[in-house]
């Protein structure tokens, strides 16, 4: 069965220059392992290929059962000079949550 990440996890976007940060936090901590095994940096890169131009680094934080994706060159030069509507990329947390995953 396919489900959206939105159904099992929440996220907040942050910006540092032209770098976008996206947390991924399961509502139920027991889904952390599922997220670790399925939501790889490569998978996120594929999902956000129109948005993130360079590499994505994934950090695992088992203490708080959360993942963090650090996406380089993702904000069309960054908050001060971008022509985009959402110059911070604050709305992009919900772009990550659009990803579909297979669940049992």
């Amino acid at each position: 069965m396919k489900t959206k990440l939105y159904d099992i996890a929440h996220s907040r976007a942050g910006d540092k220059g032209n770098t976008l940060t996206l947390s991924l936090i399961p509502y139920d901590e027991s889904d952390y392992e599922l997220l670790c095994s399925t939501i790889t940096a490569q998978k996120v890169k594929e999902h956000l290929k129109e948005i993130v131009q360079d590499e994505i680094i994934r950090y695992e934080l088992p203490n708080i059962a959360s993942l963090l994706f650090v996406c380089k060159n993702a904000l069309l030069t960054g908050v001060t000079t971008s022509l985009a509507i959402d110059t911070h990329g604050k709305s992009l947390s919900y772009a990550l949550l659009e990803m579909e995953i297979e669940t049992i």
């Binding site: 929440h10 996220s11 907040r12 942050g14 910006d15 540092k16 770098t19 940060t21 947390s23 936090i25 509502y27 950090y59 934080l61 708080i64 059962a65 959360s66 963090l68 650090v70």
Partner: peptide
């Protein structure tokens, strides 16, 4: 709660180490 604190802890962090 835990969820609000987790979101904030990771906010704008580019390397949690």
């Amino acid at each position: 709660n835990l969820a609000t604190a987790k979101e904030q802890l990771l906010y704008e962090v580019t390397n949690p180490y």
